[in-house]
Amino acid sequence: MLKLDPRTCIILLVIANAVIFIQRNIAIEIIWVGLLLLLLCICGAVRSAVKLAAVFTACIVIQYFVFPVAPKSVVSIFFILISYARKVIPCLIVGTLTMKTVTVRELTAALLKWKVPYSLIIPLSVSIRYFPAIKEEIGYIRDAMKLRSIRFTDKFECTIVPIMMSATTTSDELSAAAVTRGIENPCKKTSIIDIRFGIADFVCIAVGVLFIALAVIFR
């Protein structure tokens, strides 16, 4: 299974965005999406790749075969949605790749190498780690609301207030723990994770750049 450098994933994201913005040629778009899906398969996320491929195919089929014959009202509802979904898919593929193969620690190491300031890295990694906690908490709050049969109109208040309360305590506890481990130590921090570019990374970026060039030429 191929393992890309986290930095390659970030660069590919930018490239994917650029290609989609520039290209006007459906052949380039399909080949580009196909290659990205292949990359996703090689990196081990076959199931997500199949799902995304299905969505992309559906978008194309709907746009070129269903819309010309569908009733006007249906088309008007879905036209923008489908067109936009098609535009977003390449980025979604690289995004899935990043989410499935890169851990928060590796991302931190990569950003450190790029000399991203600590004042951005710390909140970013805390944020990414905190999502599962929010999900868990909402589950508990929902259970508690069911027990007390809270009215629908009160639901927003009864959800947001406990979440904010616990967020406040968590941030206090977390900072106490982080300060103990030396987060405010002004010296340069090191990382145990060693990341470096390999041949695969260079190939990916080269292909990406090639596609930007193709998109510019055949627009």
Binding site: I122, P123, V126, S127, I128, Y130, I134, S171, L174, S175
Partner: peptide, 10 residues
């Protein structure tokens, strides 16, 4: 910074 991270998540 940690507070900002948590509130951003919410």
């Amino acid at each position: 910074l940690i507070t900002v991270g948590i509130f951003s998540a919410i």
